[in-house]
C-alpha cells in the first residue's frame, strides 16, 4: 500500500475547505462547501476551517467566517496574486502538512480540480471527484463521498480508510449557499509561508474573463439540443417571458449557436431551476446530470422513445418547431390579457 504523508492517527478532527477566490471575490462553490461543512462539523463536534491563499485577500476572511468557518488560515504573498499551479500546490501542501486536517474539500472548478489533482499525488492520498454528497461517519471520522456513476442510476459510496487528508471535489451548485451571519465569530490566522519564485514555471501571458453568466441558480431554464437545429432565438423569447435563461446541450455549443457558458451537464453547468424545459434533447447522461436537481422537468421531443422522457415529469411528444411557436403565442396572448 502507498502511505500518505500523514496517517489517520496523526490527523486533526477538522474539515478544511479551499476558499477559492478570483479577483477579490470568493467563489460560490467554496461558500456552498462551507455550508455543508458547517452542518457536518456541528453534528460531529469538529471544527470547520477555510484555506485562503492570494495577495491582499485578508478582506475576504470575515465573509468565510460569516458563512460558517471557525477559523481561516490565511497565506498572502506576491507570488500568489494569480493562480499558478506550482505556487498554490506548494503553499497548500505546506499548510496541510503543518495542520493535518482529516478532510479537505475543493470546488470542482478548473483551478480547483487542477490543484486537487496535483496535491493528491504529492500527498499520496485519495481524491474523490465531483461528489454529489459528502457525509462523515461519526465513529471513525471517515468521509463517505457519494458519486453518481454514469447513467446517473447508480450511486457509489467511496471512502479511504488509511490515507489523509480525505480529499474531495464538488461541482458548483450541488450544495445550497449558506445564509451569511455577520455576527458569527471566528479567528483569522495569518501563516508564514516559504515560497521560492524559482519553482513557478507557469507564466500568465493574458487573461480575459467576462462578467460570467451563472446558470446554476436560474429559476427557469430553457434548454435546447441538436433538435432545435440552431434556432435558439425562439428559446430566448420563451425564457424572457419568465425571466429565465437559455441553456444548451453540447452539440449546439460546439456548432456555435450558443455560448460555451450556457452548456448544461457534465462538462457544463449543474443547474437547480424550478423548471427545466428541454427542447430537442435526447437525454444523454452527460446532459441529464445538469438538470437532475430541477424541481420540474418538461421535455419536448419528436421521438417517443427518447431517453430524456425517463428523466422528465411531463413528456411532450412533438416537433419543437411546431409546439414552441404555439407556446409563445399562448403565453404572450395570456400576458396581454392578464398583465
Amino acid at each position: 500500500m502507498v502511505t500518505s504523508h500523514y496517517s489517520p492517527q496523526a490527523e486533526n478532527k477538522t474539515i478544511w475547505v479551499f476558499l477559492e477566490q478570483q479577483d477579490g471575490v470568493l467563489e460560490e462553490v467554496s461558500l456552498e462547501l462551507l455550508a455543508r461543512g458547517r452542518e457536518l462539523a456541528d453534528q460531529l463536534g469538529w471544527t470547520l476551517e477555510g484555506l485562503l491563499l492570494g495577495q491582499h485577500v485578508a478582506g475576504l476572511a470575515p465573509h468565510g467566517i460569516a458563512c460558517g468557518a471557525d477559523r481561516i488560515w490565511l497565506a498572502e504573498h506576491d507570488l500568489l496574486e494569480h493562480f499558478t499551479i506550482e505556487a498554490f500546490t506548494q503553499v497548500a501542501c505546506q499548510l496541510l502538512l503543518q495542520k493535518r486536517p482529516s478532510v479537505f474539500w475543493l470546488g470542482a472548478t478548473p483551478n480547483g480540480r487542477d490543484l486537487a489533482g496535483r496535491l493528491a499525488v504529492r500527498l499520496r492520498t485519495g481524491l474523490n471527484a465531483d461528489c454529489t454528497d459528502l457525509r462523515i461517519e461519526p465513529r471513525e471520522g471517515l468521509l463517505v463521498c457519494e458519486v453518481s456513476g454514469f447513467g446517473g442510476g447508480v450511486l457509489a459510496m467511496i471512502e479511504m480508510r488509511n490515507h489523509r487528508p480525505q480529499m474531495a471535489t464538488v461541482r458548483p451548485g450541488v450544495f445550497a449557499l449558506p445564509h451569511p451571519d455577520p455576527s458569527r465569530v471566528g479567528e483569522v490566522i495569518s501563516m508564514e509561508i516559504d515560497l521560492d519564485p524559482a519553482i513557478i514555471q507557469t507564466r500568465v501571458i493574458e487573461r480575459s474573463v467576462g462578467a460570467g453568466l451563472n446558470l446554476s441558480r436560474v429559476p427557469f431554464l430553457v434548454t435546447g439540443g441538436r433538435g432545435m437545429e440552431g434556432d435558439f432565438k425562439i428559446l430566448e423569447q420563451l425564457a424572457q417571458l419568465f425571466e429565465g435563461e437559455v441553456g444548451a446541450t453540447r452539440p449546439p455549443v460546439d456548432e456555435g449557436h450558443v455560448g460555451r457558458e450556457r452548456q448544461v451537464g457534465q462538462t457544463g453547468v449543474v443547474c437547480s431551476p424550478k423548471v427545466a424545459l428541454c427542447c430537442g434533447i435526447s437525454g444523454a447522461f452527460h446532459f441529464v446530470v445538469g438538470i437532475e436537481k430541477a424541481s420540474l422537468v418538461i421535455a419536448i421531443n419528436s421521438d417517443p422513445e427518447a431517453p430524456i422522457f425517463e428523466y422528465a415529469d411531463y413528456c411532450v411528444v412533438g416537433d419543437v418547431h411546431e409546439v414552441l411557436p404555439e407556446l409563445i403565442a399562448v403565453l404572450s396572448g395570456q400576458q396581454v390579457t392578464y398583465a
Binding site: G152, M157, I158, A312, V323, E326, V330
Partner: peptide
C-alpha cells in the same frame, strides 16, 4: 487509496414521466 464501500440506486429518478397528448396547440 479510495475504495468503493457501497452502491445504491439513485433516488433522483422519481420523475412523473407523464405523457401529454394533443395537437401542437393543445400541447
Amino acid at each position: 487509496p479510495t475504495t468503493v464501500s457501497g452502491l445504491a440506486e439513485a433516488a433522483s429518478r422519481e420523475r412523473r414521466r407523464q405523457f401529454l397528448t394533443g395537437t401542437p396547440s393543445e400541447l
